[in-house]
Design a protein around this nucleic acid. Structure first.
Lengths: 233, 233
DNA sequence: CGTGCCTTTGACCGCCCGGTCAAATCGGAA
DNA sequence: TTCCGATTTGACCGGGCGGTCAAAGGCACG
């Protein structure tokens, strides 16, 4: 298979394909698949509609190319959760990674949200396949940590859901968050808030006699911006 | 103002207007405004397209009727937060109310999510007006609780965001949640998880000299801010 | 048995949708 | 300069879009 049809052969192909995907991401993430038109994508990419169809065979193809590219990077942060690491440090680092993704790739997050809201017509099988397997695997790790008393005894699946919900909220509901905050950038404060929130939620039950080494004490090489509890904007 | 043009004069009007709003909620919450067609709403309501336009002047009118009706009930749970009540009890009850809304009105939640994802073209002013005012008011209450040491010193705005994010997630991402859980109903477990999560996150800092007596101290016997706040199911 | 109003609908309008196609244009290697 | 493939586009297609309209049905009153 020597560089078959797919990958860009020329500079101009690379540039235009990228422009189309970029404009498509803008549109799909805002209006969903059905609410997006080829004309809008074409205008956003600075191309004519037939020219867009020259690079992608259909609107579906653009959408699926975006989804495929998205899924690869979307599962990575969870996959990086290290069963051998420090439990709270690993989980807080995962929170930090996910929040960073919301900050850097809000359109991707909204694209994903739109797909789910629409009933996941295209990625449904992946959710109950790859994603479920990955989550179950990591949930087992977390349950092990909880059973060993290294973190609080929380439901691992719902803990993961809570991390997704809290971090993606800052991307998906960005407009609302900024409206309520009066336009301020929510991310700096969010980082501290989430670190403090999960740090408290995960602090292990200190059974009788356990040391007073409570959550706020110096943690190992934790994620950036830890212990920034209670920050206000 | 004696029953002017708006409200249903006849039984048949009440029934059909309701059927249209119901079908519209189905469509808009799934595909957003742009992705929804009048034909689909009409089919869902069991009416012909012109008949739908007999009850509502336009597609916009249906959408805005739904948004208006939604906003009334959407802000209520937060407005009910009682500054005079027990801090943790009040906040946990708010969490429970919001989760209950996700369980009972998932379509409304998804409609709202779609509107925000699209950039809040219609409710933007309300977000930075009424909603912001309400949130600021309640944030001040929460800040007062924190300053008085009655709850942990958390950023009040982000605390409210976290409640929205965590509760609405179970409605907006229902498909994903159920796919990962293998189809099980997530709400029973979510209720307990969120109660525990916020109970821990809000537990006040124990004063300096009591390292061992941290937040989770009296848990087994039932803490003052009881976990089952609000609803049993 | 009208009669008048509420309700319903088939036909239609102009426009935009996703997509096709043949022809025109471009641009680099020989 | 010539040439050939890569690129671009105007014109077009069938169908679906939001919305209109006149006319037809239904239905509770006198």
């Amino acid at each position: 298979m020597s560089e078959t049809a797919k990958r860009p052969r020329t500079r101009i192909q690379a540039r235009n394909r990228q422009a189309i995907l970029d404009a498509g991401l803008d549109c799909f993430s805002e209006a969903g698949f059905r609410g997006t038109t080829l004309d809008r994508i074409a205008r956003g990419a600075g191309l004519s509609k037939p020219n867009v169809l020259y690079y992608f065979p259909s609107k579906d193809a653009i959408y699926e190319a975006l989804l495929e590219r998205l899924l690869k990077t979307w599962l990575d942060p969870l996959a990086e959760l290290d069963p051998g690491g420090d439990p709270r440090g690993e989980l807080l680092a995962y929170v930090a990674r996910k929040l960073e993704m919301s900050r850097l790739f809000p359109r991707e997050s909204r694209l994903f949200a739109n797909e789910i809201l629409a009933g996941a017509p295209r990625i449904g099988p992946i959710l109950s396949g790859e994603l479920r397997a990955l989550v179950d695997e990591k949930a087992a790790v977390i349950r092990g940590w909880a059973n060993a008393g290294r973190i609080a005894p929380v439901d691992p699946h719902h803990l993961i859901f809570s991390i997704w919900a809290l971090t993606q909220h800052y991307a998906d509901f960005d407009v609302q968050v900024r409206a309520v905050l009066g336009g301020a950038d929510p991310f700096p404060a969010a980082e501290g808030f989430l670190a403090a929130m999960f740090d408290r939620a995960l602090a292990p039950e200190t059974a009788a006699g356990a040391p007073g080494a409570l959550h706020a004490a110096g943690r190992p090489g934790g994620p950036p911006g830890d212990a920034g509890a209670g920050r206000s904007r």
